[in-house]
Amino acid sequence: YQDQEQRILKFLEELGEGKATTAHDLSGKLGTPKKEINRVLYSLAKKGKLQKEAGTPPLWKIAVS
């Protein structure tokens, strides 16, 4: 689980600052079920590491501290 968090954070960091992506996109790029990706995304957002942008589907990006 920790491993997934690292992979997602790394992927988003590599996208570049301010760039956002969807759970669907992450799921495809990382070869992980979207349900699992979503769980990790919401967990990271709760920890303040990610920012969720409203929309359908929601967009995710690295939180700027």
Rank of each mutant, 00 (worst) to 15 (best):
N38P: 00
P57I: 04
D3G: 10
E53Y: 07
L15E: 09
N38S: 05
Y42K: 15
W60A: 01
I8G: 00
V40F: 12
V40P: 01
A54I: 12
T21I: 14
D25W: 09
T22D: 04
R7H: 07
T32Y: 13
L9A: 02
S65Y: 09
K46D: 08
V40E: 03
Q2T: 14
K52V: 09
E5N: 02
T32F: 09
Q51V: 15
E13Y: 08
L50T: 06
E13N: 09
L59Y: 10
K10D: 11
K19R: 15
P58C: 08
V40S: 11
K52R: 14
R39W: 05
Q2Y: 10
D3Q: 06
K52S: 06
D3T: 08
R7Y: 07
I62L: 14
K19C: 14
T22K: 01
A54L: 11
K46I: 06
E53S: 09
T21R: 04
L50C: 15
Q2C: 07
E36C: 13
G16C: 04
E17R: 10
K10W: 06
Y1E: 06
K29F: 10
K52Q: 09
K61Q: 07
Y42H: 14
G55V: 05
N38K: 14
V64Q: 14
P58V: 10
L30K: 00
T32N: 05
T22N: 07
K52D: 02
L26K: 00
L26N: 00
E5V: 06
G16W: 01
T22M: 02
K52T: 05
E36M: 15
S27W: 02
R39Q: 13
T56Y: 13
T22W: 00
A45V: 11
V64A: 11
I37C: 08
A63G: 10
H24V: 02
I62F: 06
S43D: 10
G48Y: 00
K29T: 09
E53M: 14
D3N: 12
L26R: 00
K47L: 07
K49P: 02
T32R: 15
K46G: 10
T22H: 04
F11P: 01
I37L: 09
F11H: 09
E13R: 10
L12K: 01
D25I: 13
E17A: 15
A23V: 07
G55Y: 03
K46Q: 10
W60M: 00
L15I: 07
Q2V: 05
K61G: 04
A23T: 04
L59G: 09
Y1L: 09
L59S: 14
R39D: 07
K19M: 14
A20M: 14
T22Y: 02
Q2E: 04
T56D: 08
A23P: 02
